[in-house]
Write a protein that binds this DNA or RNA. Structure first.
Lengths: 123, 123
DNA sequence: TTGACATCCGTGCGGTTACACGGTAAACAA
DNA sequence: TTGTTTACCGTGTAACCGCACGGATGTCAA
């Protein structure tokens, strides 16, 4: 269904079009948020922000999840560059990588959690 | 596959378990991020943050999307309480609702966009 | 070397999700 | 009233996603 050609408020439409999110910006934003929008991945990143580095098995232990689950989550986070690895023998330690946005770590992550705590009507 | 019972770094595991994200907190956070992690929904919220209020047709016009697409997106945002409506005749105006977290609007939204702009290696 | 362990990789399945289509309700115009 | 417009709703479908499974790789101990 195509949008109508007779805007109700042409001024605001124009304003929204010029100052709004472009498709490319939205794409980049969404690809980052999609990675955060998963319980296992979000808890992994939050844990790594707390304790610097952890290996796969310990991470699974800390979250109470299976190693398969965190293994798959780390696979995606690693591909996106959000986490970095350090091999020590047969153990692989993970930490937040250089691709992890610093502002997110400093400002947003905890605020996001705090705001969801303050709104218990969510689900 | 079950996680091993012999933590490599028991101290950090314990620290991550106590200060990490609980399952409930992660669930609330994820349900919010999942709503933001969509191009149409993200652009709608961003546009409403810019121009106060817009009707469905004008929103579709501003985003260059179909009315069906934005209609479906608004359905989910409305159910979650992130947007509110105001009826004026046969036109329905949408604006950011009381369920929309204020810290997200003030601090995080633009920072999230800015940080994705600063990292062009994303996708 | 042999065996146990920690992790990675490819594949298939089940559940979820975005979206288009058709029909419906309400409001305005003629 | 009739017709047009604006938006909502329910349903079906196609694509995506998380995850478990099996096998492979590399490492340490005996």
């Amino acid at each position: 269904m195509e949008p109508h050609q007779h805007p109700v408020d042409p001024e605001r439409v124009d304003h929204a079009r010029s100052r709004g999110l472009s498709g490319e910006d939205a794409g980049r934003l969404v690809s980052l948020l999609s990675l955060l929008a998963d319980p296992v991945r979000a808890r992994i990143l939050y844990a790594l922000d707390e304790v610097e580095e952890l290996c796969v098995g310990d991470l699974a232990l800390a979250l109470g999840a299976t190693e398969d689950s965190v293994g798959y989550a780390l696979r995606l986070l690693r591909t996106a560059g959000l986490v970095a690895t350090r091999k020590a023998g047969r153990v692989v330690f993970y930490r937040l990588g250089p691709g992890f946005p610093a502002p997110l770590r400093e400002h947003c992550l905890r605020q996001l959690v705090a705001m969801t705590r303050a709104e218990p009507d969510d689900d």
